[in-house]
């Protein structure tokens, strides 16, 4: 089967997943009812409200958040040449978490604007620190270790602020850090979707340069690639993607680690099929994880980050064992 056929299958699966996921949830909505609601001919106002205001934003945000996180992971793994790289392990999520925590506790009244902005600034802050450390060490292979160190440092500061803060606000932040699609709206989808599309365009514009890095820096330089600039640009793209997603959906870890590895095995390692495949598979994965999150417990939701982290940590160990045996 060609790469194009595999990607087409993934695209169909993504569309089918969106459709089926809209029918699943505490309120019973049949396929026929869903179609009538989506075509705006719905007579049942409750079903209409559930479809348009609850499920559609959730499913669409799940789709684009999964797309963005998987692409960020794939790019980070390629540019750091480390199969274990993931936005979560890179300080980006912790940085976004710190920014969001500060915004949540100090600017509670203007959260709609302040939270994503603060999360984005926090993520950027983390990336700058990681880059400065890596530059000081003069070793790109240390980028991930620097990321983990920065991640722990920023998480410690976040926890300290939460410990000192108002318990109610702290609870809100803690729940947010676990990741959830409960409170997402269509406007969030529009913002994340725009960022994902811009990021995808930048990544696809550089796909050959990113491919060249797969054979080492020296090889990429000989093909005319400005390796330092490319790394910086891609780190900024990953920071923007992750920060925006984390700002609206909270901490959803390990999607960026797992999905690209599966795509590399199933479709290919070069950037073009990897990114398109990761985007589609990441979207499908997060749609279904969210379905589990909202249906697994009878009267409560499981934060989505708990599920992705549970699956991801096992996958992480699996990759480590595989890397060792190779």
């Amino acid at each position: 089967m060609t790469k194009t056929s595999k990607l087409t299958i993934l695209l169909v699966l993504a569309l089918v997943s969106i459709f089926i996921a809209l029918t699943i949830g505490p309120a019973n909505i049949s396929v026929t009812e869903l179609i009538t609601c989506l075509t705006n001919e719905c007579h049942n106002s409750v079903s209409k409200m559930v479809v348009w205001q609850v499920r559609l934003p959730r499913v669409l945000v799940g789709l684009v958040a999964g797309m963005g996180l998987a692409c960020a992971g794939a790019i980070l793994q390629n540019i750091t040449r480390n199969p274990l790289a993931d936005p979560y392990l890179f300080g980006i999520v912790s940085g976004a978490g710190l920014g969001a925590t500060i915004a949540n506790l100090s600017l509670a009244n203007q959260l709609t604007i302040a939270l994503p902005l603060a999360a984005f600034l926090g993520a950027l802050f983390a990336v700058v620190i990681v880059l400065l450390i890596a530059k000081a060490l003069q070793r790109i292979d240390q980028l991930l270790l620097a990321g983990i160190a920065v991640s722990f440092m920023l998480a410690a500061i976040t926890q300290f602020i939460l410990y000192l803060g108002d318990p109610f606000a702290s609870n809100r932040v803690l729940f947010w850090l676990m990741g959830s699609l409960t409170r997402v709206e269509m406007s969030h989808f529009t913002i994340i979707f725009s960022i994902v599309i811009i990021a995808l365009l930048i990544i696809l514009a550089c796909h050959r340069q990113i491919d060249a890095l797969l054979l080492g820096d020296e090889s990429a330089v000989s093909l005319g690639v400005n390796v330092d600039k490319l790394r910086l640009l891609m780190l900024a793209v990953c920071a923007a993607l992750t920060a925006t997603i984390v700002a609206y959906c909270g901490g959803i870890g390990f999607v960026g680690l797992m999905i690209p590895h599966i795509v590399r095995q199933l479709i290919g390692v070069t950037t073009l099929p990897l990114i398109i495949g990761s985007a589609l598979m990441g979207g499908i994965f997060l749609i279904w994880v969210d379905v589990i999150a909202r249906t697994a417990l009878a009267n409560a939701e499981i934060p989505i980050g708990i599920i992705t982290s549970a699956i991801g940590s096992i996958f992480f160990l699996f990759i480590m064992m595989k890397t060792k045996s190779n």
Binding site: R81, P83, L214, L215, E218, R264, V269
Partner: peptide
């Protein structure tokens, strides 16, 4: 180059 260091299964 003298030696390349491939990553992933190119």
């Amino acid at each position: 180059a003298q030696k390349t260091v491939p990553i992933f299964q190119l």
